[in-house]
């Protein structure tokens, strides 16, 4: 977590969209920015993007204020997917509270998916985060393009891990909110277990999750 200030009644949470290059991480954030209610979210900040490739990262801030006045700020980041930006990925992963792994459903992208996931495991270990405890949602994106891995095959592969799995088409807006909602809920549970947000600050799970995932009317 980026910041937890009891006196200022403030918590800043970091969520990260990880995955191979061109798997649709920025598209996920753009889609969230479009779908989520403008009240309670800031503008998407796209930092230095060249030719569709993110060089630094994207940032979408979201806010929640509990009835008690306790404020939670969610900062949703993407990482640059290209192999050469590993150092940036590591810097963005620092103090992350939850991860979405955006995999590319195309058959030819299986290699990059696996490499990127291995890279995620390695980098999490390097920044001192435990992949087994960190909230993690797997999204298989680009379900709308041809020559993709069948869903049952993906289910068979990922089921044993017990990780939540979401099929998505970020360009069409499908599955994006679902992915985000699952991550927010998991992340809340983990933070609540550690910080007793409900007991001490009156932050109710349903209220929080509902608020930060409310779609534009």
């Amino acid at each position: 977590m980026i910041e937890f200030d009891e006196q200022a009644k403030k918590l800043v949470v970091k969520l990260v969209y990880y995955g191979p290059a061109l798997s649709g991480k920025t598209t996920n954030l753009l889609c969230l920015h479009d779908q989520l209610c403008t009240e309670g979210r800031g503008d998407l900040m796209v930092l230095d993007t060249v030719d569709d490739r993110t060089i630094f990262f994207d940032l979408l801030p979201l806010f929640y204020v509990a009835p008690s006045g306790f404020r939670i700020k969610l900062k949703v980041f993407t990482v640059p997917g290209q192999v050469r930006h590993d150092a940036t990925r590591k810097a963005v992963l620092q103090r992350a509270d939850g991860i979405v792994f955006v995999a590319d459903s195309q058959k030819k992208q299986m290699g990059p998916n696996a490499e990127s996931f291995a890279n995620l495991e390695k980098n999490l270990a390097m920044v001192g985060l435990d992949i087994d405890k960190l909230p993690l949602v797997i999204q298989f994106n680009k379900r709308d393009v041809p020559d993709i891995i069948p869903e049952n095959e993906i289910q068979t592969t990922w089921e044993p891990t017990g990780l939540p799995l979401v099929m998505a088409s970020a360009l069409q807006g499908d599955g994006v909110l679902e992915t985000y909602r699952q991550l927010v809920a998991l992340t809340f549970d983990r933070l609540n277990a550690r910080l007793e947000l409900t007991a001490r600050f009156g932050v109710e799970r349903a209220d929080f999750v509902g608020s930060v995932t409310r779609i534009a009317g």
Partner: peptide, 15 residues
């Protein structure tokens, strides 16, 4: 040398 010590700038820190 731990990485934590080297990173004095946390991406996402409120300004």
């Amino acid at each position: 040398m731990s990485i934590d010590r080297k990173l004095d700038f946390i991406i996402g820190e409120d300004k």
